[in-house]
Write a protein that binds this DNA or RNA. Sequence first.
DNA 1: GGTGAAAGGTCATTAAG
DNA 2: CTTAATGACCTTTCACC
Lengths: 167, 167
Amino acid sequence: MLRRLFAVYAGTVDKLSSIDELDARLIKLLADEPRIGVLECSRRLGVARGTAQARLDKLIERGVLRGFGPELDPVALGYGVMAFVTLEIRQRRGHQPVADHLAAIPEILEAHTITGTGDLMCRIVARSNADLQRVIDQIVSDEGIVRASTIIALEEQIHYRVLPLVG
Amino acid sequence: MLRRLFAVYAGTVDKLSSIDELDARLIKLLADEPRIGVLECSRRLGVARGTAQARLDKLIERGVLRGFGPELDPVALGYGVMAFVTLEIRQRRGHQPVADHLAAIPEILEAHTITGTGDLMCRIVARSNADLQRVIDQIVSDEGIVRASTIIALEEQIHYRVLPLVG
DNA sequence: GGTGAAAGGTCATTAAG
DNA sequence: CTTAATGACCTTTCACC
């Protein structure tokens, strides 16, 4: 078998990406038809059911598979406007208080500390452009935030995907 | 019942966000324990199985629930570096050729056309900072791209989430 | 490998908008 | 009158021991 195919040496990465060809096929199979069971997987992959089960368990254990949570579409939920907001924060007390403030706002779907002139990059959604202003006001209401620079996403060219990385 | 609780009027939104309280409870239940079946859902929600099934089907039909695909962690796959890349493109032939070029690069996890000085915002990953250069080179190899400005994500403050929008 | 259980479909009845 | 919820029955399929 081609176990540990990649096993790359990638700087400070602590989890090795030990994904072999069977794991990849398993993942792609589950991505295609998430509702099928382990038995069906083993049949399609041409392996014993125990093998499929073991592979699945290990993928979850390693953190490669984070789970099978329902994917929700913000647009269908009424949040048709998406934007990226770059925040500049006061460096005094670190970013944790600001991160806590952001986490309490449901419209903030994601946040990262970043390099460059900004300090934080957030992905936010709103029900309309007018509503976007409300969300931004809510964001900048925190003392720790100096400036917010907003970029609106017009059209989604590539929807979020990870699968191509699997090969 | 409190059906059509939100039913907001949100500009050019064509899909009404008709999520009632039962739908919300169902979604949150599935988010908590994705592996449970429809029968188990119906028991926990205190409704008939057919009801739970019908609600689930309709949520999928409306596009609110995009599916139950496996969530993959790029970090565990060996892609420990994440970055946001803003692209400036030649406006001559539109962005479609560029979008096609980007779609062929697996490390590009997402792409949107945007407002502001840039034209496209991409989320990319790489195995290391050195590898990031390779990915960027691959991106800018397209004729249609004039400039790429990269911002590296240092730490994930808020992991991607949509659930808070459900209430 | 066998067994209890769940998924998925259909149906008639009842209730509510 | 239309839409939804319910409980019942059935067959196939899976998960677990």
